[in-house]
Amino acid sequence: MDKFDYIENPHRRYNPLTGEWVLVSPHRSKRPWQGQVEKIVEEKRPSHDPECYLCSGNERIGGEKNPNYDDVYAFQNDFSALLQDTPKGEFSDGDLFRAECESGVCKVICFSPDHSLTVPEMSVENIRKVVDLWCKEYKELGDRKEIGYVQIFENKGSIMGCSNPHPHGQIWASGLVPLETSKETDTQKEYFEKHGNTMLSDYLKTELEKDERILVENDSFVALVPFWAVWPFETMIISKRAVSNLLELTSEEKTDLADIYKKLTVMYDNLFEVSFAYSAGLHQAPTDGEEHHEWHLHMHFYPPLLRSASVKKFMVGYEMLGTPQRDITAEGAAKRLKELSKVHYKYQ
């Protein structure tokens, strides 16, 4: 029998951040590539939409009126998933029926007053203002005794549940550490105690040496396709310096975060020449009052588009009942993204 080759043969890849596995089937990607087969006609949006509840000066669905903001703006979500005044308590009926109260704060961050823009079309200077607001909200919410974790994220595109195209993101601050970050806390802590370095420091060092999945880098951050990627064009942004949260970044590093955020999303848009949908979020240390030397700041991007502007990849069948699976290898996805123009397709 031929020697096993993970680039050619079906195999599982391990995700050290979550302790989970993904089935990779490289041989299936040798089928004829069904690339971009249609051109999506994108709606041209105005800079200010009088019907948009996120635009400056407009009335929101809950009746509140936005100020005439001119850069970034944050407000409490009018329909929050978490509420500050949730009564404390729990429900238990034997070992099988349990419920516990959960309280918190949900906020919306408008990235720009310009309704027509998305992150890859914004200037680095204006994205830096978003990063600064992330820092402000992370500190203010994280300083509350009742808040154990501050999750900053962005849903882009209607297929990822985004109900409004205005450039914006969200923050959900909860009392307990959410499931995904709880898993990452445990795995990173175990690794740190064993090796004395953060997991992502060692991972990033090896990735930079191999240069098989690196997309773009600057002085402070690296964007790459993780070895264990599940989504077709899944990526991560990882800080070169082992910082546990946004507040530890220098001014230069904050600008570099804005810079690489733009560069990565330009790649995404250029892949199928469409405003590329994704869910993205920062993972950083919990704000539960404990020391978290094991945590290393990073940002996940989970995009659903597979072969074109309309062909999507979702978890179905075996993936829902067995384990996640992908055909395009992380190396193949990285190669395709890296070869793209660095100039947004609208301005080429």
Rank of each mutant, 00 (worst) to 15 (best):
D2E: 15
K3Q: 14
F4E: 12
H11S: 12
R12V: 03
L17Y: 07
T18P: 09
G19T: 01
V22R: 04
V24F: 09
R31E: 09
G35P: 00
E38I: 13
V41H: 14
H48F: 10
H48S: 09
D49Q: 06
Y53W: 15
C55P: 07
K65S: 06
P67G: 12
N77C: 09
L83K: 15
L83W: 03
S92P: 00
D93M: 14
G94E: 08
C101M: 10
C106Q: 10
F111E: 02
T118W: 00
V119G: 01
S123C: 04
N126K: 09
I127R: 05
V130Y: 08
L133T: 05
W134M: 00
E140W: 03
D143A: 09
G157F: 05
I159P: 01
I159C: 15
S163K: 11
P167L: 07
Q170H: 08
L176W: 09
K189A: 05
F192N: 07
F192V: 10
H195S: 10
T198S: 15
M199S: 05
D202T: 12
K205R: 13
D211K: 07
E212K: 14
S220H: 12
F221Y: 03
W228S: 05
S239Y: 03
N245T: 07
L249C: 04
S251Y: 01
E252A: 13
L257I: 01
Y261S: 13
T265K: 11
V266W: 10
S279H: 00
A285K: 12
H292Q: 09
E294A: 12
E294H: 15
L297G: 06
M299P: 00
F301M: 04
Y302M: 10
P304Y: 00
A309F: 02
M315K: 04
G317W: 08
L321N: 12
G322N: 13
Q325K: 15
K335I: 06
K342D: 10
H344I: 04
Y347L: 15
Q348L: 14
